[in-house]
């Protein structure tokens, strides 16, 4: 149906429908919303997209997304240095930060082990985690990957890698329902899971 529109709008619809959860219908609606909106608003949107690509990088310590390196969390001297919480993605950092419960630092893996999707240890920030543990004075690593098969196996993999070192590796308590995504849990659930973590 988008074939009936002028080229620029067809192009925009095509771009928008690449977003997760957005089909052609929604993309068309969004495209027309942008078309109708004031010029400044549309430009501001375009600029934000450019800014996110040009200014956001990964923290060289924890691999969280940031505009300054090291990131605000890694810079914060009030945060404990000896405890690292390992998460799958940047959104998980946000979920845990919201609870206000965790005072340590993070390490963002950017994925989980999943051979069928071609993701192995080398595709994740695992070696740098080991290096952080070896170099630093880390006492505990909490692996907060999702309680799905892939998240569990990644947690186990990390625990086995860290075994030779003097560090406690824990997993969030099973307060999290099996097969869930950390991102979608409320703060109370995550807080409870943080409290009851267990050693792997």
């Amino acid at each position: 149906m988008s074939g009936h529109f002028a080229k620029p709008i067809v192009q925009l619809i095509r771009e928008l429908s690449r977003f997760p959860g957005i089909g052609e219908k929604t993309a068309t609606r969004l495209a027309f919303h942008i078309l109708k909106s004031p010029r400044e608003e549309a430009l501001s949107l375009a600029n934000s997209i450019i800014a996110v690509k040009e200014q956001i990088k990964l923290c060289s310590v924890c691999y969280h997304i940031t505009d300054i390196d090291p990131c605000a969390i890694c810079r914060d001297s009030h945060r404990e240095r000896d405890i690292i919480c390992v998460v799958e993605g940047p959104q998980d950092v946000a979920s845990i930060e919201k609870t206000g419960e965790f005072k340590g630092r993070y390490h963002v893996l950017h994925g989980v082990l999943s051979p069928m999707d071609g993701v192995g240890p080398d595709d994740l920030r695992i070696d740098s985690l080991v290096k952080r543990v070896v170099d630093g004075d880390v006492k505990e690593v909490i692996v907060a990957t999702n309680p799905k098969v892939e998240g569990e196996t990644t947690a186990l993999y990390i625990a086995r890698l860290l075994k030779p070192f003097d560090v406690k590796v824990t997993r969030l308590a099973q307060g999290l329902p099996m097969g869930g995504e950390l991102e979608y849990f409320d703060e109370a659930t995550i807080s409870k899971a943080l409290e009851g973590r267990r050693v792997i």
């Binding site: 051979p115 192995g120 240890p121 098969v149 569990e152 196996t153 186990l156 993999y157 086995r160 890698l161």
Partner: peptide, 13 residues
């Protein structure tokens, strides 16, 4: 090719 520890983790699971 894969790392020994990787297959071991899947075996354990």
């Amino acid at each position: 090719a894969f790392r020994r520890q990787e297959i071991n983790s899947w075996s354990e699971k």
